[in-house]
Design a protein around this nucleic acid. Sequence first.
DNA 1: AATGCGATTCTCT
DNA 2: GAGAATCGCATTT
Length: 206
Amino acid sequence: MKKLEQEFYLRSAILVAKDLLGKYIVKEDKNGIISGMITECEAYMGINDKASHSYKGKITKRNKTMFHEGGCAYVYMIYGMYYCINVVTEKEDVPEAVLIRAVQPLVGLDIMSNNRYGRDYEELNKKEIINLTNGPGKLCKAFDITKVNDGNDLCDGKIYISENENEEQKKLEVISAPRIGIDYAEEAKNYLWRFFIKNNIYVTKK
DNA sequence: AATGCGATTCTCT
DNA sequence: GAGAATCGCATTT
């Protein structure tokens, strides 16, 4: 499987977000390879987007990796208990990013299952299988992605995105919807900058 | 199916 | 000191 190169990321977050659907996120973990197909993501469009951590262009300790050149991971903690992973896009100092909100588990099912529930995949019930990675905090737990991965290079590192060579990806139907959890963002909360694969069950909200 | 709430701690003002 | 790009569980419909 071919790892995506930096050119892919040097575009607007909206374009990258749509193109990420159906591709594979991969982590070379100490326990083995973990991988899932990206089913849902959201674009955060930088200094003019009220929902973005980089709104108004202010750099803080938390958000500084958003200002890096596209092709690295922005990982932050939320609600004191969870991590979320974003793909940084655009050139340096254009602080856009794509939040990976859900994936469909493919490889390393037992690793994910143990990270989330402390037991093997075979032991899970139907609900637990769906809930393995259908949310930004959930998939980070399953992949063991934490603040140590903030700033990681996606083009040359243990975490990366791979091309999907299957035919299925070319036939994907994409739905656009409002982003989740940004009620404070005034007019920006209605922008249709969340994208997900139609009819896929591994998404947070249809 | 939808709504409500508590958890828990980091980050920024 | 407030609020957060969330989750899981309980309760209600």
